[in-house]
């Protein structure tokens, strides 16, 4: 079914400074390892198990175009309930583009077109009648660079609940803020300075604040786009523990450059290559016995 959307787009990529890896040319395009069928310009078939039972989100034949550029080629993948799926792959492989499709953040990029079907609890999120505002409340997102609002810690967390009207009074709002910060593992560190600026926190704390902000809206799915790439190892460790913790309640899709991180936090791993989904499987399986040669080359460090 073609539920393609030529959304009325509002920004050019340059204008909002989007620096998704797809935007720039891949720095080390592995020409030699091009699969044979790539040359005939057909999407590579996915090996492994892209589908799970009772998925939270189901993507079917998703294609993404930036103008003429075909950034995601016929990807079908499920996001399971209460588990973490990691997207890995070399720069420019389309993993960030893919994850941004899941809450329609790509709508803001001019010239971006998505075809195919992405179902959230059985409803196609690209259907005409779907409003992105509630969708993004259901599918939250944590970005690469910690981006707290230039407001107080409290206001950062309270903003989402406020605009969605989740709290009827101040006490309820206080409670949401506290539970969200607790779940993000930040409460003990900031409970005495909730009125301080969110930007005054350290990088790791800021990222956890952003996670708290996302949780506060009560989403079902949390998308994380390389959430630790700007953090030091200790802060990274904390976030990884947190992700493991959050898995009990939410479905999480994480894009990461670090294979160790994927191995540590995820239950399933999807390997992307030049817009194709090459292989999906249980994480241990992908890292111990990859079935596709490209996956093997990537995880053994041949390229990437």
């Amino acid at each position: 079914m073609e539920t393609a959307t030529e959304q009325r787009t509002l920004f050019t990529k340059e204008e909002i400074g989007v620096t998704t890896p797809e935007d720039s040319k891949p720095q080390h395009r592995p020409e030699k390892t091009l699969p044979a069928d790539r040359a005939q310009d057909k999407p590579a078939p996915t090996v492994g198990k892209p589908f799970v039972d009772n998925p939270r989100m189901a993507c079917r034949h998703v294609n993404v175009f930036y103008g003429d550029k075909h950034a995601i080629r016929d990807v079908s993948l499920d996001i399971g309930r209460n588990q973490v799926i990691a997207m890995i792959g070399p720069s420019g492989c389309g993993k960030s583009t893919f994850i941004r499709c899941l809450n329609r953040m790509n709508d803001t990029i001019e010239g971006c077109r998505v075809t195919g079907e992405i179902l959230l609890d059985g409803q196609n999120i690209y259907a005409r009648q779907v409003d992105v505002v509630p969708l993004r409340a259901q599918v939250g997102m944590v970005f690469q660079k910690p981006n707290p609002f230039p407001k107080s810690i409290y206001d950062n967390v309270a903003y989402g609940p406020k605009i969605h009207g989740l709290a009827r009074n101040r006490a309820e709002l206080d409670e949401i803020v506290e539970t969200s910060l607790q779940r993000a593992g930040l409460w003990d560190e900031v409970k005495d300075r909730l009125s301080h600026a969110g930007t005054s926190l350290s990088g790791g704390q800021q990222q956890r604040l952003c996670i708290a902000r996302t949780i506060a809206v009560g989403p079902e799915v949390i998308l994380m786009d390389e959430p630790c790439s700007a953090l030091d190892p200790i802060a990274t460790g904390k976030i990884e523990e947190l992700i493991d913790e959050l898995r009990r309640q939410y479905s999480i899709a994480i894009v990461t450059h670090s294979m160790q991180q994927a191995a540590r936090v995820s239950q399933r791993t999807a390997y992307f290559h030049l817009g194709d989904l090459i292989e999906v499987g249980r994480t241990e399986q992908i890292f111990t016995t990859p079935r596709h040669k490209l996956t093997q080359d990537y995880i053994t460090g041949r390229f990437g």
Partner: peptide, 30 residues
């Protein structure tokens, strides 16, 4: 307006702010 970092827009849209809310609450003050 151009100088407002896109990360703030992303952050606002990411928690489900509408376009108008993004502009009024975050972009304009900055």
């Amino acid at each position: 307006l151009q100088a407002v970092p896109p990360s703030i827009r992303d952050a606002a849209l990411g928690v489900g702010a509408s376009k108008m809310q993004m502009i009024l609450h975050h972009v304009l003050p900055l």
